[in-house]
Design a protein around this nucleic acid. Structure first.
Lengths: 132, 132
DNA sequence: ACACTTCTTTAGAATAATTATAAACTACAT
DNA sequence: ATGTAGTTTATAATTATTCTAAAGAAGTGT
């Protein structure tokens, strides 16, 4: 399994559940945007067995902490995550409640001219809301 | 009362509670960023009486629908609102969980080059996360 | 293989933000 | 004043997320 080493290197034991979640998350061409519930559904469709919702939460948070996932700031009732952990921006389709990646070439460079005393910039994220 | 007319014009009855909330929200020099719970606290400090949490929710949502408030897209456990309904950007101080306005002169112009079939851009918002 | 420790999974309970409900109340028009 | 439609309110319901504690699995040393 190609994820066994990756997990072990991160100090995470390669359990059956984590490997299954890795497959759902990372065995794909394109960036994957998801909520916990959507992910749980995908996992349950893909595997032949049960997985606890708590495990999905645990794993997603563990992966986020290790830098394999990131949260996307949207005001939705559910939290969105992204398998693309590079600095990038998003379209959010309000009607379909779906995220679409923007890569850097789609957005001009963003300059932040204001400074805040004693704080440094951790990230700069653009959210472009789309309507019909 | 200066808010009576404003409310009536929007088709909202100028009730005692709504007028009190207007004072807390709009009788100030600077933009006000808040969560429902913070707003509830401010109201209870300011007035000499009770207000139901449900009323705070109702009113904030009514004002949002009428365009007097807008939601700010952040992933927090609580929803943030803003009395500044113009298109503008934010710092979010991760440690203090506080929002700071950026005005347009603080952020260079943002070009969105990508188009999505049949959709148009409703808003472009930048969130700059700050850490120590 | 075995024992032992530590990490992980799990079901279910707990928490917390938000929304729904339905009865009492209030603004407003007639 | 009376009627009606909108509003407030306490409380219940809902929903996403986190917590808990017991059972299970992985890793280490023997």
């Amino acid at each position: 399994m190609k994820y066994v080493e990756k997990l072990r290197k991160s100090g995470l034991r390669p359990t059956k559940q984590r490997l299954q979640i890795c497959e759902v998350l990372f065995d794909r061409e394109e960036t994957f945007h998801f909520t916990i519930n959507q992910l749980e559904q995908k996992i349950k469709n893909q595997i032949n067995g049960k997985i606890s919702l708590a495990t999905v939460y645990n794993t997603v948070h563990a992966f986020e902490k290790k830098g394999y996932l990131k949260q996307i700031p949207i005001n939705s009732n559910q939290t969105y995550f992204d398998t693309n952990v590079t600095d990038h921006h998003h379209f959010y389709d309000l009607k379909d409640e779906k995220l679409i990646d923007l890569d850097d070439s789609d957005v001009g460079p963003i300059k932040i001219l204001k400074k805040v005393n004693g704080k440094k910039i951790k990230s700069v994220e653009v959210l472009v809301k789309l309507e019909d």
